[in-house]
Design a protein around this nucleic acid. Sequence first.
RNA 1: GGAGAGUUGGCAGAGUGGUCGAAUGCACUAGUCUUGAAAACUAGCGUACCGCAAGGUACCGAGAGUUCGAAUCUCUCACUCUCCGCCA
Length: 422
Amino acid sequence: MLEITKIRENKDEIIAALKVRNFDADKSIQEVLRLDNEWRSAKGELDGLAAEANKLTKEIGDLYKSGQADKANEVKAKSAALKANEPVLKDKVAALAEEINAILYLIPNVPNKIVPPGNADTDNVVEMEHGTKPSLPKNALPHWELAKKYDIIDFELGVKVTGAGFPFYLGKGARLQRALINFFLDHARDAGYKEVIPPLLVNEESGRGTGQLPDKEGQMYHTPTDDFYLIPTSEVPLTNIYRDVIVKESDFPIKLTAYTPCFRREAGSYGSDVRGLNRLHQFDKVEIVRIEHPDRSYQALEEMVNHVEELLKALELPYRKLRLCGGDLGFTSALTYDLEVYSAAQDKWLEVSSVSNFETFQANRLKLRYKDADKKSVLAHTLNGSALALPRILAALLENNQTENGINIPKVLVPYTGFECI
RNA sequence: GGAGAGUUGGCAGAGUGGUCGAAUGCACUAGUCUUGAAAACUAGCGUACCGCAAGGUACCGAGAGUUCGAAUCUCUCACUCUCCGCCA
């Protein structure tokens, strides 16, 4: 969430910037500032009262020590009278703080200056396109048909055992999946990311830390008996490693990577978007996460996008890079680049990576800070990106590389798969 | 699942209801000494909020209670550890 101190100082800029994402913050910000003023004066009053009471308490202690019990009783009466109001005031301060937080929780991150205005994904800016769309054989099939033809993914079996959106990968399909994971992880390691295997279930605090809760409550699977959430992305456990942590400035850059399955309920999705591998409830993803010094976070963002582009180039997939518009920008993000691969048989661009800088928006909830040269605690910047999400990569690979004689595996993967063709 | 023990500052660890934001040790930072380092010595060393500042307030797992006053007493909850059982 946004920092109240920044809202105090830059109210107008923030309101103006939030318009880019079609968020009218005027009322809520005015309200927050009004409540904040009220809170500060109530807090001052309460602190003063407590200071007075603390003084009397000391007096009583001294009087008892010097054996003046009767005088002590007089002061006791004074103290009691003074404190009569305290609970009311205390409640008021707590209530105001809660109100302020409740509003702050609902205000999205301030978009970066270069975020284009817009309402929907059609307003995203295509920054560049790389590679050429393949020309497919006449009777080219979409990946779900190919999956059946070569018996490498079984969607119906998933329905039987679990439900829609939980496919089985079989034989070479499973091997290819594992090959991609290893290829991605090796690449991340070479780029200096530390590999992590995190828990797949997290507690509520972690969900709040990275901002999935409370806004996306319904998107996560929840285990009511133990009150855990299944991770929708490894961003959640990885970034929460640094919840309530004050790092040293010399620790930067902090670079983590993890392969995990991801679980998403995807309530309300339907139609051709969810066909085959396009949208699943459980899917595999390799994620890269960075904790950065505020001065370096945008350079880090560029590095991360380049990293993802290298992967796509190595896989010989046609892709394009989008700068998300205000309307499509995630709640917690200040700037996001999406990378989409072209899946030829579907004739669709599929989002395979989303790389974001959250600046201090997550760090503020996480209380993730570093000590600067003056030994002051300053909020760090957090970033993350998919590198990459597996199913749509698989879809594009299958569709784009199909031939009459089978499906060709990109050269870079062959050492990982052990076969060149499906 | 059963039984027990515990939760204090970066870590270890003390703490009789008032002098405790909290001993001590280690770690860390700066200085002295040294050709340099180590050792030794000296000093500093939690977090957050309010305030221009002086200063003030809060925090000893969380929440509530007793009291003029709670790290210390009472209650509720959460978590951790140990042993036993079960198990990949």
